[in-house]
Protein backbone atom coordinates (compact mmCIF):
# COMPACT_ATOMS: atom_id res chain seq x y z
CA UNK A 1 0.00 0.00 0.00
CA UNK A 2 1.28 3.47 -0.85
CA UNK A 3 1.51 6.06 1.91
CA UNK A 4 -0.98 8.16 -0.06
CA UNK A 5 -3.51 5.31 0.09
CA UNK A 6 -2.92 4.98 3.84
CA UNK A 7 -3.54 8.72 4.30
CA UNK A 8 -6.81 8.57 2.35
CA UNK A 9 -8.14 5.59 4.32
CA UNK A 10 -6.95 6.98 7.68
CA UNK A 11 -8.59 10.30 6.73
CA UNK A 12 -11.94 8.58 6.20
CA UNK A 13 -11.68 6.89 9.61
CA UNK A 14 -10.71 10.13 11.39
CA UNK A 15 -13.56 12.04 9.75
CA UNK A 16 -16.20 9.50 10.72
CA UNK A 17 -15.10 8.31 14.16
CA UNK A 18 -12.52 10.75 15.50
CA UNK A 19 -10.07 7.86 15.82
CA UNK A 20 -6.54 8.52 14.59
CA UNK A 21 -4.69 5.67 12.87
CA UNK A 22 -0.90 5.76 12.89
CA UNK A 23 1.24 4.58 9.93
CA UNK A 24 2.59 1.70 12.04
CA UNK A 25 -0.98 0.41 12.22
CA UNK A 26 -1.12 -0.19 8.48
CA UNK A 27 -1.24 -3.94 9.25
CA UNK A 28 -4.70 -3.21 10.67
CA UNK A 29 -5.86 -2.01 7.26
CA UNK A 30 -4.62 -5.16 5.62
CA UNK A 31 -6.19 -7.56 8.10
CA UNK A 32 -9.47 -5.74 8.71
CA UNK A 33 -10.19 -4.77 5.11
CA UNK A 34 -9.14 -7.99 3.35
CA UNK A 35 -12.67 -9.45 3.32
CA UNK A 36 -14.13 -6.18 2.03
CA UNK A 37 -11.59 -6.06 -0.83
CA UNK A 38 -12.44 -9.61 -1.75
CA UNK A 39 -16.19 -9.02 -1.62
CA UNK A 40 -15.99 -5.94 -3.84
CA UNK A 41 -13.41 -7.45 -6.16
CA UNK A 42 -10.92 -4.68 -5.41
CA UNK A 43 -7.35 -5.77 -6.10
CA UNK A 44 -5.60 -3.83 -3.33
CA UNK A 45 -5.88 -1.13 -0.68
CA UNK A 46 -4.63 1.35 -3.30
CA UNK A 47 -7.65 0.54 -5.46
CA UNK A 48 -9.90 0.92 -2.41
CA UNK A 49 -8.35 4.33 -1.64
CA UNK A 50 -9.03 5.47 -5.21
CA UNK A 51 -12.61 4.23 -4.92
CA UNK A 52 -13.06 6.18 -1.68
CA UNK A 53 -12.14 9.37 -3.53
CA UNK A 54 -14.67 8.89 -6.28
CA UNK A 55 -18.22 10.32 -6.01
CA UNK A 56 -20.91 8.24 -4.32
CA UNK A 57 -18.51 6.44 -1.98
CA UNK A 58 -20.31 7.44 1.22
CA UNK A 59 -21.59 3.98 2.08
CA UNK A 60 -18.20 2.47 1.38
CA UNK A 61 -16.49 5.07 3.60
CA UNK A 62 -18.88 4.25 6.44
CA UNK A 63 -18.15 0.56 6.11
CA UNK A 64 -14.38 1.13 6.07
CA UNK A 65 -14.61 3.31 9.20
CA UNK A 66 -16.68 0.68 11.01
CA UNK A 67 -14.33 -2.14 10.07
CA UNK A 68 -11.35 -0.20 11.39
CA UNK A 69 -12.86 1.10 14.63
CA UNK A 70 -14.64 -2.00 15.81
CA UNK A 71 -12.92 -3.40 18.85
CA UNK A 72 -11.13 -6.63 18.51
CA UNK A 73 -13.33 -9.04 20.33
CA UNK A 74 -12.81 -12.57 21.45
CA UNK A 75 -14.19 -14.92 24.03
CA UNK A 76 -12.96 -14.52 27.62
CA UNK A 77 -10.61 -11.75 26.56
CA UNK A 78 -7.86 -11.19 29.16
CA UNK A 79 -9.19 -14.08 31.28
CA UNK A 80 -8.72 -12.57 34.76
CA UNK A 81 -11.82 -10.31 34.86
CA UNK A 82 -13.98 -13.32 34.03
CA UNK A 83 -12.43 -15.41 36.80
CA UNK A 84 -13.04 -12.51 39.15
CA UNK A 85 -16.64 -11.90 38.17
CA UNK A 86 -17.40 -15.60 38.43
CA UNK A 87 -16.23 -15.54 42.05
CA UNK A 88 -18.56 -12.56 42.71
CA UNK A 89 -21.73 -14.27 41.51
CA UNK A 90 -22.53 -16.14 44.78
CA UNK A 91 -22.07 -12.94 46.80
CA UNK A 92 -24.36 -10.93 44.51
CA UNK A 93 -26.89 -13.77 44.50
CA UNK A 94 -27.04 -13.84 48.31
CA UNK A 95 -27.38 -10.06 48.49
CA UNK A 96 -30.44 -9.88 46.22
CA UNK A 97 -34.08 -10.64 46.92
CA UNK A 98 -35.08 -13.96 45.28
CA UNK A 99 -37.26 -12.50 42.54
CA UNK A 100 -34.75 -9.94 41.28
CA UNK A 101 -32.53 -10.71 38.29
CA UNK A 102 -28.77 -10.29 38.41
CA UNK A 103 -28.01 -7.88 35.58
CA UNK A 104 -24.80 -7.72 33.54
CA UNK A 105 -23.87 -5.11 30.94
CA UNK A 106 -21.31 -5.48 28.18
CA UNK A 107 -21.10 -1.78 27.39
CA UNK A 108 -19.07 -2.01 24.16
CA UNK A 109 -20.09 -5.46 23.10
CA UNK A 110 -18.93 -5.42 19.48
CA UNK A 111 -19.91 -8.75 17.90
CA UNK A 112 -21.08 -10.20 21.21
CA UNK A 113 -18.20 -12.37 22.44
CA UNK A 114 -17.95 -10.60 25.80
CA UNK A 115 -21.69 -10.88 26.47
CA UNK A 116 -21.72 -14.56 25.49
CA UNK A 117 -18.61 -15.22 27.59
CA UNK A 118 -20.61 -13.90 30.55
CA UNK A 119 -23.53 -16.13 29.54
CA UNK A 120 -21.26 -19.20 29.43
CA UNK A 121 -19.75 -18.28 32.77
CA UNK A 122 -23.23 -17.92 34.32
CA UNK A 123 -24.38 -21.25 32.86
CA UNK A 124 -21.33 -23.00 34.28
CA UNK A 125 -21.74 -21.30 37.67
CA UNK A 126 -25.37 -22.51 37.75
CA UNK A 127 -24.28 -26.00 36.86
CA UNK A 128 -21.77 -26.06 39.71
CA UNK A 129 -24.06 -24.44 42.29
CA UNK A 130 -27.74 -25.53 42.36
CA UNK A 131 -28.65 -22.49 44.50
CA UNK A 132 -27.96 -20.25 41.49
CA UNK A 133 -30.40 -22.11 39.23
CA UNK A 134 -33.42 -20.30 40.70
CA UNK A 135 -31.83 -16.92 39.99
CA UNK A 136 -32.78 -15.04 36.86
CA UNK A 137 -29.87 -13.51 34.91
CA UNK A 138 -29.97 -10.79 32.27
CA UNK A 139 -27.15 -9.66 30.02
CA UNK A 140 -27.34 -6.46 27.99
CA UNK A 141 -24.87 -5.85 25.19
CA UNK A 142 -24.62 -2.37 23.69
CA UNK A 143 -22.44 -0.89 21.00
CA UNK A 144 -22.25 2.26 18.96
CA UNK A 145 -22.08 0.36 15.67
CA UNK A 146 -25.31 -1.17 14.41
CA UNK A 147 -23.71 -3.69 12.04
CA UNK A 148 -21.86 -5.46 14.87
CA UNK A 149 -25.09 -5.70 16.89
CA UNK A 150 -26.76 -7.69 14.14
CA UNK A 151 -23.87 -10.15 14.25
CA UNK A 152 -24.02 -10.25 18.04
CA UNK A 153 -27.74 -11.14 17.94
CA UNK A 154 -27.05 -14.02 15.55
CA UNK A 155 -24.49 -15.54 17.90
CA UNK A 156 -22.80 -17.18 14.92
CA UNK A 157 -18.99 -17.21 14.76
CA UNK A 158 -16.25 -18.30 12.39
CA UNK A 159 -13.72 -20.97 13.18
CA UNK A 160 -11.13 -18.25 13.81
CA UNK A 161 -13.37 -16.37 16.22
CA UNK A 162 -14.21 -19.35 18.42
CA UNK A 163 -10.59 -20.33 18.85
CA UNK A 164 -9.38 -17.19 20.60
CA UNK A 165 -9.71 -17.56 24.36
CA UNK A 166 -12.50 -20.15 24.30
CA UNK A 167 -11.52 -23.53 25.73
CA UNK A 168 -12.49 -26.26 23.28
CA UNK A 169 -14.60 -28.05 25.89
CA UNK A 170 -16.75 -24.92 26.25
CA UNK A 171 -17.04 -24.77 22.47
CA UNK A 172 -18.24 -28.37 22.36
CA UNK A 173 -20.69 -27.82 25.19
CA UNK A 174 -22.25 -24.47 24.36
CA UNK A 175 -22.08 -24.25 20.54
CA UNK A 176 -23.35 -26.22 17.57
CA UNK A 177 -21.55 -26.32 14.26
CA UNK A 178 -23.62 -24.94 11.39
CA UNK A 179 -22.11 -25.12 7.91
CA UNK A 180 -18.57 -24.55 9.11
CA UNK A 181 -19.52 -21.83 11.58
CA UNK A 182 -20.41 -22.10 15.25
CA UNK A 183 -23.69 -20.98 16.79
CA UNK A 184 -24.09 -20.42 20.51
CA UNK A 185 -26.95 -22.41 22.00
CA UNK A 186 -30.33 -20.67 22.17
CA UNK A 187 -30.52 -21.07 25.94
CA UNK A 188 -27.48 -18.78 26.28
CA UNK A 189 -28.49 -16.51 23.43
CA UNK A 190 -31.80 -15.89 25.20
CA UNK A 191 -30.00 -14.53 28.26
CA UNK A 192 -28.60 -11.74 26.11
CA UNK A 193 -30.22 -8.67 24.58
CA UNK A 194 -28.34 -6.34 22.23
CA UNK A 195 -29.08 -2.65 21.71
CA UNK A 196 -27.45 0.33 20.09
CA UNK A 197 -26.08 2.92 22.55
CA UNK A 198 -23.66 5.81 22.59
CA UNK A 199 -21.98 5.91 26.01
CA UNK A 200 -21.90 9.71 25.85
CA UNK A 201 -25.69 9.84 25.74
CA UNK A 202 -28.25 9.28 28.51
CA UNK A 203 -27.80 5.74 29.86
CA UNK A 204 -30.52 5.75 32.52
CA UNK A 205 -33.01 3.91 30.28
CA UNK A 206 -30.92 0.75 30.66
CA UNK A 207 -31.54 0.51 34.40
CA UNK A 208 -29.39 -0.66 37.29
CA UNK A 209 -26.62 -3.25 36.85
CA UNK A 210 -24.75 -5.56 39.18
CA UNK A 211 -21.79 -5.93 36.84
CA UNK A 212 -20.65 -3.65 34.02
CA UNK A 213 -17.88 -4.54 31.58
CA UNK A 214 -16.59 -1.48 29.72
CA UNK A 215 -13.20 -2.54 28.48
CA UNK A 216 -10.90 -0.92 25.95
CA UNK A 217 -13.40 1.81 25.15
CA UNK A 218 -12.21 4.74 27.25
CA UNK A 219 -8.94 4.75 25.31
CA UNK A 220 -10.87 6.25 22.42
CA UNK A 221 -12.15 9.25 24.42
CA UNK A 222 -10.56 12.50 25.57
CA UNK A 223 -10.31 13.05 29.38
CA UNK A 224 -13.55 15.07 29.84
CA UNK A 225 -15.50 12.42 27.89
CA UNK A 226 -13.83 9.66 29.92
CA UNK A 227 -15.04 11.33 33.13
CA UNK A 228 -18.52 11.69 31.73
CA UNK A 229 -18.73 8.05 30.67
CA UNK A 230 -17.30 6.75 33.97
CA UNK A 231 -19.73 8.82 36.05
CA UNK A 232 -22.66 7.77 33.90
CA UNK A 233 -21.66 4.12 34.32
CA UNK A 234 -21.15 4.58 38.08
CA UNK A 235 -24.70 5.96 38.28
CA UNK A 236 -26.07 2.74 36.70
CA UNK A 237 -24.14 0.49 39.07
CA UNK A 238 -25.75 -1.14 42.13
CA UNK A 239 -24.12 0.09 45.39
CA UNK A 240 -22.37 -3.29 45.72
CA UNK A 241 -21.88 -3.74 41.96
CA UNK A 242 -18.63 -3.80 40.02
CA UNK A 243 -17.26 -2.05 36.95
CA UNK A 244 -14.58 -3.79 34.89
CA UNK A 245 -12.31 -1.62 32.74
CA UNK A 246 -9.60 -2.76 30.32
CA UNK A 247 -6.25 -3.80 31.74
CA UNK A 248 -4.61 -0.60 30.46
CA UNK A 249 -7.41 1.71 31.61
CA UNK A 250 -8.01 3.53 34.88
CA UNK A 251 -10.65 5.68 36.55
CA UNK A 252 -8.08 7.25 38.87
CA UNK A 253 -7.79 10.99 38.44
CA UNK A 254 -10.92 11.04 36.29
CA UNK A 255 -13.70 10.67 38.86
CA UNK A 256 -14.25 10.25 42.61
CA UNK A 257 -17.41 8.21 42.03
CA UNK A 258 -15.42 4.99 41.66
CA UNK A 259 -12.78 3.33 43.77
CA UNK A 260 -10.50 0.48 42.70
CA UNK A 261 -10.69 -2.94 44.32
CA UNK A 262 -7.37 -3.61 46.04
CA UNK A 263 -7.06 -7.21 44.90
CA UNK A 264 -7.35 -6.85 41.13
CA UNK A 265 -6.37 -4.24 38.58
CA UNK A 266 -9.04 -2.50 36.53
CA UNK A 267 -12.06 -3.36 38.70
CA UNK A 268 -13.99 -0.59 40.45
CA UNK A 269 -16.89 -0.25 42.87
CA UNK A 270 -18.97 2.83 43.57
CA UNK A 271 -17.16 5.05 46.09
CA UNK A 272 -18.84 6.32 49.25
CA UNK A 273 -19.54 9.58 47.37
CA UNK A 274 -21.22 7.67 44.56
CA UNK A 275 -23.23 5.52 46.96
CA UNK A 276 -24.53 8.69 48.59
CA UNK A 277 -25.40 10.07 45.14
CA UNK A 278 -27.25 6.83 44.27
CA UNK A 279 -29.14 6.83 47.58
Amino acid sequence: MTSRAFQIIAGVVKERSGIVLMPEQSYLLETRLAALLQRLGLGSLDVLAARLQSPGSDGLAQEVAELLTTNESHFFRDGKPFDHVRAQIPRLHRARAPGLPLRFWSAACSTGQEAYSLAILIAEAQEADPALRQRRFEILGTDLTRSVLERARQGLYTQFEVQRGLPVRMLMKHFTQVEGRWRIHDRLRQLCRFEQANLLQDLRQFGRFDVIFCRNVLIYFDPPSKTRVLEALAAQLAPDGLLYLGAAETALGLTDRLEPLPEIRGVYRPSAAARRAIA
Binding site: Q159, V168, R169, L171, M172, T176, Q177, G180
Partner: peptide
Protein backbone atom coordinates in the same frame (compact mmCIF):
# COMPACT_ATOMS: atom_id res chain seq x y z
CA UNK B 1 -10.50 -32.17 10.81
CA UNK B 2 -12.82 -29.50 12.22
CA UNK B 3 -16.20 -31.25 12.33
CA UNK B 4 -17.67 -31.22 15.83
CA UNK B 5 -17.70 -35.05 16.11
CA UNK B 6 -14.03 -35.23 15.03
CA UNK B 7 -13.11 -32.71 17.71
CA UNK B 8 -14.99 -34.74 20.33
CA UNK B 9 -13.14 -37.83 19.16
CA UNK B 10 -9.81 -36.06 19.74
CA UNK B 11 -10.86 -34.97 23.23
Amino acid sequence: ETAQEKILEGL
